[in-house]
Design a protein around this nucleic acid. Structure first.
Length: 137
DNA sequence: GCCAACGTTGGC
DNA sequence: GCCAACGTTGGC
């Protein structure tokens, strides 16, 4: 299957991009939303995702890659939800803010905009390219 | 199976 | 700190 693109949100005071970099590999657990969980289940090793800082920053700061496909979330006592493992790829040249994304008509259909509470969302290939362009890459 | 009440997320 | 959007729960 062709490589898929995602956007994954984290509050930087809880778990930031730099935290992931210093760990080398991170477990993306704690997702308790069914729609987000479906996306986690769809992810394949080698898929890439934007790392978005919610709450503080409100911007895409870097790129990560899926390093292990879904498994039972170890933090879920009922073992109903899943987690994946991720590794950092690189920081983007210039972080792309939510404000800039909202101001770009090409990105109006993004799940990030349409369903802002969703913590794991798909990104279309053309949106991926557009955001990289905005990041100065 | 419907819907009101409540909880959570996340932007402002 | 507030509120909108959405999900979940529980009474009927």
């Amino acid at each position: 299957m062709k490589k898929q693109y995602w956007l994954m949100k984290s509050e930087p005071d809880v778990y930031s991009y730099d935290d992931l970099v210093s760990e080398g590999e991170g477990t993306w657990d704690g997702v308790r939303n069914h729609t987000a969980a479906i996306h986690l289940r769809t992810m394949k090793v080698g898929d890439e995702a934007f790392f978005y800082h919610s709450n503080i920053g409100l911007e895409i700061v870097g790129i990560i890659t899926i390093s292990q496909e879904h498994f039972i979330d170890p933090t879920d006592e009922k073992a109903r939800f899943v987690a994946v493992k991720v590794k950092p790829v690189r920081k983007i040249a210039n972080s792309v803010t939510l404000k800039a994304i909202k101001a770009n008509p090409k990105l109006a259909a993004m799940e990030l905009i349409r369903q802002s509470r969703l913590s794991v969302a798909p990104v279309r290939p053309e949106e991926w390219k557009e955001i990289l362009k905005m990041a100065g890459e």
